[in-house]
């Protein structure tokens, strides 16, 4: 039997991996993937809580919205990354140094 705790642990691990990816990876596309992992961790939480604790549909609806908005955000993010690549010919985050103190 899969319990609530297992879902929460999985989502916690996903969240931690997402944060680690965002900090450690230098490839901008990989960083966007890290954002997706964090969002999915939250969506998983919502569904798990909805099933085991609250017994209402709010969590399911919320996770659907998260999926839709994550797609929109990824589309805009990737479009910006493409612009960045066309201008700088790299997608390495360390090349984004034009704006700083």
């Amino acid at each position: 039997m899969i319990s609530l705790a297992s879902y929460l642990v999985i989502s916690m691990i996903l969240f931690a991996i997402g944060i680690t990816v965002m900090i450690a990876r230098k490839n901008i596309v990989a960083i966007l993937l890290g954002i997706e992992l964090i969002l999915n961790a939250a969506a998983l939480n919502f569904v798990a809580y909805s099933k085991f604790v609250t017994q209402n549909l709010d969590g399911h609806v919320f996770s659907l919205f998260i999926i839709v908005i994550a797609a929109a955000e990824a589309a805009v993010g990737l479009a910006i990354v493409i612009r960045f690549f066309q201008l700088k010919e790299t997608i390495h985050i360390d090349e984004a140094t034009q704006l700083r103190n």
Binding site: S11, F15, G18, I19, M22, I28, I31, L32, I35, I38, L39, A41, A42, A43, N45, F46, A48, Y49, V53, T54, D58, G59, F62, I66, E73, V76, G77, I80, V81, R83, F84, L87, A96, Q98, L99
Partner: peptide, 28 residues
């Protein structure tokens, strides 16, 4: 300008994700 948009999107995605994670626990 492209760099500005990219930094905005990356920071924004991270904080939105963290906020959602907090919200999910509040909901639970």
């Amino acid at each position: 300008s492209t760099e500005a948009g990219m930094k905005y999107a990356l920071y924004g995605g991270l904080t939105a994700g963290v906020m959602l994670f907090g919200m999910s626990h509040i909901y639970g």
